[in-house]
Design a protein around this nucleic acid. Structure first.
Lengths: 361, 361
DNA sequence: CCATTATAGCGAATCGTTTCAATAAAACAA
DNA sequence: TTGTTTTATTGAAACGATTCGCTATAATGG
């Protein structure tokens, strides 16, 4: 005897049709509130709804997507989820996606190229409707871009502006942010300022330094080359701390006095803080420190870190707006050019910066 | 005239069939290396592969899943992704999932019940093959459990052991962890130890306290009620710092001396660190502090926090092993009981704890 | 040389929806 | 009354893949 147990695993639209006494077509029309539902009398609707509910029916998304070619799913590719910089952006993405009732498939490339490609392929296979790439830190090379464009899928990159203009992007105004941070230190009376610059390969690194230079020029502040060190090129964002520590240590060894230190980012600043503590230099008593990013731990630190805040949730949200627009454009067969958004950073003044002690006293 | 442009958006198996000169059936058999492929001569295979490649064909997952009822996707529901405790677990989950070539749909409940339910529904609609719930912090009530069980989907909960035994779980051995932490302090000579306990509603809170009590009993250590405070029940994990600060502040006001403080978790410890700093108490010079969890910022702190490390990546991996086993069991129509794994925590000794100063000196 | 058996490939049904075109009754207009 | 429109409902054809069962040739064995 065949199992034929009553617990028919899946209840289909035909089951609902049978129970309600109408055809599958009608059930579909009612349940989706399709245009034709206009002609369906309320009582019919009610009976169908009731049958559907009592059977616990919900439509099979695969069948649905197979016809409609839509699946309300976007891919989110991060390069390293353990980077604290990611999390708020992910929150921003998630939140906006949820509002638009999209679901996200999360892929983490671990900063590995092969993994990125494999994931990209898997995502493409799933026929995601859009793709958001969170390019924190990794030196995103151009071939990856080509891979993405091959997919012909609406894509936004957060954190990196590609040379080619074809893919949308959301970035923060690094230059203005750095300008503001330095301006803050300057306003507190600091003149001997040390810099731990970011890895040269990073575009944000360059942009932040441009901000510094511009401010220096605007105010005739002298940038002492002996007070400038660079973070090595490095794939793992989480060792930024160690590098920051090491570079600051080296800076200290130069015996060149400074009253403030501007770090490439918060992680670097944490490392610097540790190096300064080790050298017996009090922050902010003897030296002010400013970071960049405002990742979560920065406000926790003692002293809490003065830093330049990236509007990370907003960046995530902005990315979603762009993909969403692109997706609807595609659905309506409109063409849709790439969009580039640059969001403003905001200086957050906390405890790690203080006016330079008055020399006269 | 119809558009009929050559850029036929999607290339189907039939296109491959046409190009290679075989039928769709054969193409399917070859491309999936199905049992029947045994009979297909190598040259035929080669021709089909070539055609597929040259057309850039990849199968439509919807059509595929529609038949096979499998889609290699699991849902991952977190309660708050901005909680730093989440990230390493997510990494562990992602990594294991990737190995098994599963993709994950990430849902973030924001600690809101309605959002949890909505997401659960969406995930069920997608017919995810398994579900991993990351129950950090939220007081997961029993109704949610019922919701999950309704779905009949292999589920694992990380971080919470449900009363009902029906759903698998992965938790950490809180009691032993707390026991070890206290033992560490005791070994350093501390006898007047303050405690900032976690919210009473949290099961981990209770378990950790049990560990403390057990150790106290084992060693006749006296637990001074005036040195014990409780964190308020509170939904947002990120304000644990503020609560930790406030409670430590209050503790300090009691003027009851102590040489060490054991915090419910790292966030609380950060708050305590800040309160102690404010009161001019040096850590670890005048007071040792120990946390729990070992979230990312803990090692960054100055002083770096001594804490009890939860093996978060391993927990994520363990969860994946369980769902994976459950899924294959289900696929083979075997029954599969709930599994409960309790992982050991590990004491990580850093800079925030030190031997109590010798009184004789 | 005929009966098997292995080899190669195909046609058609199926998965669960949506949607177009068709039908038919009812309502309306002339 | 007849012809047209509106209202209600449905059958059948996709969507793109997998798979069972069938045919047909080639190889094998006696």
């Amino acid at each position: 005897m065949k199992p034929r147990d009553s617990s028919k695993t899946t209840v289909t639209i035909r089951d609902v049709a049978k129970m309600s006494g109408f055809s599958a077509s009608t059930v579909s029309i009612v349940l989706n509130n399709a245009p034709l539902a206009r002609y369906i009398p309320p009582q019919t609707k009610a009976r169908i709804q009731k049958a559907a509910k009592s059977l616990g029916y919900f439509p099979n998304v695969f069948a649905k997507s197979l016809r409609s070619k839509r699946n309300h799913t976007v891919g989110v590719m991060v390069f390293d989820i353990t980077d604290p910089y990611c999390t708020p952006i992910l929150r921003g993405i998630e939140n906006s996606l949820y509002q638009a009732s999209y679901l996200q498939i999360l892929a983490d490339a671990h900063n590995e190229r092969g993994r990125f490609e494999r994931y990209l392929e898997m995502l493409l296979e799933r026929r995601i409707e859009g793709l958001i790439v969170l390019a924190n830190w990794l030196y995103l090379d151009i071939n990856l871009l080509a891979d993405i464009e091959r997919g012909k899928i609406p894509t936004v990159i957060i954190g990196r502006e590609l040379e080619s203009d074809a893919t949308s992007s959301v970035i923060v105004d690094d230059e203005a942010g750095a300008y503001g941070a330095l301006s803050h230190l300057y306003g507190l009376g600091h003149r001997k300022i040390a810099f731990v610059r970011g890895p040269k390969a990073l575009s944000s690194s360059k942009a932040r330094w441009r901000g510094v230079q511009r401010f220096a020029k605007d105010t005739d502040l002298e940038l002492d080359a002996r007070l400038i060190v660079d973070l090595p090129d490095q794939l793992n964002p989480n060792v930024g701390v160690d590098d920051g520590f090491r570079m600051t240590d080296e800076l200290l060894k130069r015996k060149r006095p400074f009253t403030a230190l501007m770090a490439y980012d918060d992680m670097t600043a944490f490392g610097a803080l540790r190096a300064l503590a080790k050298a017996g230099i009090k922050v902010p008593g003897n030296c002010s420190v400013v970071g960049f990013d405002d990742i979560n731990p920065s406000q926790l630190f003692v002293p809490a870190l003065t830093t330049v805040r990236q509007p990370m949730e907003a960046m995530g949200a902005a990315a979603v707006v762009i993909v969403n627009d692109a997706i609807t454009a595609a659905a309506e067969a409109r063409s849709f050019g790439a969009i580039h958004r640059k969001l403003a950073a905001e200086l957050v003044i906390r405890e790690s910066t203080r006016a330079v002690p008055d020399k006269s006293s």
